[in-house]
Amino acid sequence: NRKASRNAYYFFVQEKIPELRRRGLPVARVADAIPYCSSDWALLREEEKEKYAEMAREWRAAQGKDPGP
């Protein structure tokens, strides 16, 4: 049972969880929050997504994983 790799979207969703909880939505973990975040993610510009892509690269580097292209 390996841990899933964390991509840019994972970090975006993780950042949104406190806001979703404040709105009273039932989000205990990232998987619960995904349905509420997909439309917001789709509206982000590539420059805005880069922040989360960098977080994912840093996480992979800390895990000793290949950052890929």
Rank of each mutant, 00 (worst) to 15 (best):
C37M: 06
V30P: 14
E46Y: 05
R2K: 13
L44H: 00
A42Y: 10
Q63C: 07
Q14N: 06
A4S: 12
Q14I: 07
G68H: 13
E58Y: 00
E19F: 00
A33Y: 02
D66Y: 10
S39L: 09
A31Q: 08
D32M: 01
R2H: 13
L20P: 00
R45C: 13
W41H: 00
D66E: 12
N7Y: 04
P18D: 06
F11K: 00
D32T: 07
V30H: 08
D66K: 15
W41Q: 00
I34F: 14
G68W: 09
K3N: 12
A56V: 06
P35C: 03
I34D: 14
R45Q: 13
E50D: 07
G64D: 15
E19R: 02
N7P: 06
F12T: 02
K65L: 08
P67D: 04
L20A: 00
L44P: 01
A8T: 05
Q63G: 14
N7F: 07
G64F: 07
R29F: 04
G68P: 06
G68I: 06
A31V: 10
A56Q: 07
V30T: 06
P18A: 05
R22L: 10
P18L: 03
G64S: 13
R29K: 15
A42Q: 09
Y9L: 12
L44G: 00
V30G: 03
Y10I: 02
P69Q: 06
A53N: 09
P35D: 08
A53L: 11
N7V: 03
Y9E: 12
P35K: 13
P67A: 10
W41P: 03
A53D: 10
D32K: 00
V27W: 03
I17Q: 00
A33L: 04
R57H: 15
A56H: 10
A33M: 02
S39I: 04
V27D: 01
R2D: 14
L44C: 05
A8N: 04
K16L: 09
L44V: 09
R23H: 04
R45I: 04
K16M: 11
K16W: 01
L44W: 00
A4P: 07
E58D: 10
L25S: 02
R22M: 07
I17C: 01
A56P: 02
L43S: 14
M55I: 08
A8C: 06
D66A: 09
V30A: 06
A31G: 10
F11V: 04
R45T: 09
L44Y: 00
S5W: 12
P35A: 04
Q63N: 13
E46P: 14
R22P: 01
P35N: 06
V30N: 03
P69I: 03
A56F: 14
I34G: 08
Q63S: 14
P35T: 03
P67K: 11
L43R: 15
F12M: 03
E46V: 05
I17P: 01
A56I: 03
V27C: 12
R2M: 14
A53C: 13
Y10F: 14
Y9G: 03
D32G: 01
Y9C: 06
Q14V: 06
E54R: 10
D32H: 03
I17S: 02
I17D: 00
R45F: 04
L20V: 02
K49N: 01
P18N: 03
L43W: 06
R2F: 10
G64V: 15
R29Q: 13
K65Q: 10
G64I: 13
L20G: 01
V27F: 09
Y10L: 05
Q14C: 09
G64W: 10
A4Q: 13
A8V: 01
Q14R: 11
V27K: 01
P18V: 06
P35G: 07
A31C: 14
I17E: 00
P35E: 06
L43P: 04
A53E: 14
A42F: 11
W41D: 01
S38T: 05
K16S: 09
I34N: 11
V30R: 03
G68L: 06
D32R: 03
F12D: 05
P18C: 05
E54Y: 06
A33E: 01
G68S: 06
K16F: 03
M55T: 09
P69T: 02
R6W: 05
A33F: 01
R2P: 13
W41R: 03
P69A: 12
P69K: 15
V30I: 02
A42H: 12
P35H: 13
F11Y: 11
V30F: 07
S38G: 15
N7M: 13
R29L: 12
I17H: 01
Y9P: 05
P18R: 03
R22T: 07
K65I: 13
P18S: 05
R6M: 11
S38P: 00
N7S: 13
G24S: 01
V13A: 08
Q63H: 06
C37D: 00
P18K: 04
A31P: 12
Y9T: 02
N7R: 07
C37A: 08
E58R: 08
E19T: 04
L43A: 14
P69W: 14
W41A: 03
Y10Q: 07
D32Q: 02
I17N: 01
E46D: 06
R6C: 09
R2C: 14
L43V: 12
A33W: 02
D32A: 04
V13I: 05
V30D: 03
E54M: 11
A33G: 10
Y10A: 05
A8K: 04
C37P: 00
D66H: 14
Y10R: 05
E19P: 01
E46R: 09
M55R: 01
E54N: 09
R2G: 13
E58S: 07
R2Q: 14
K65S: 09
Y10E: 11
E19D: 10
R57E: 13
R6H: 04
S39K: 15
I17V: 08
Q63D: 09
R29E: 15
L43T: 10
F12C: 02
C37Y: 01
A31F: 04
R57W: 05
F12K: 01
G64H: 15
F11N: 03
R29W: 04
L43K: 12
R45V: 09
D66W: 09
P69C: 14
A42C: 08
A31N: 12
L44T: 07
R6S: 07
G64P: 12
P35F: 01
Q63W: 05
E54D: 15
Q63I: 12
P35V: 01
A33N: 00
C37L: 07
R29M: 10
A53Y: 15
K65V: 09
P69V: 13
P69D: 08
F12I: 00
Y52H: 15
I34L: 08
D32W: 00
E54C: 09
S5T: 08
A28S: 05
L44E: 04
R45A: 12
D32V: 00
Y10N: 15
E58F: 06
R45P: 15
S38C: 05
R29P: 00
L43D: 15
A42D: 13
Y9H: 09
G68T: 08
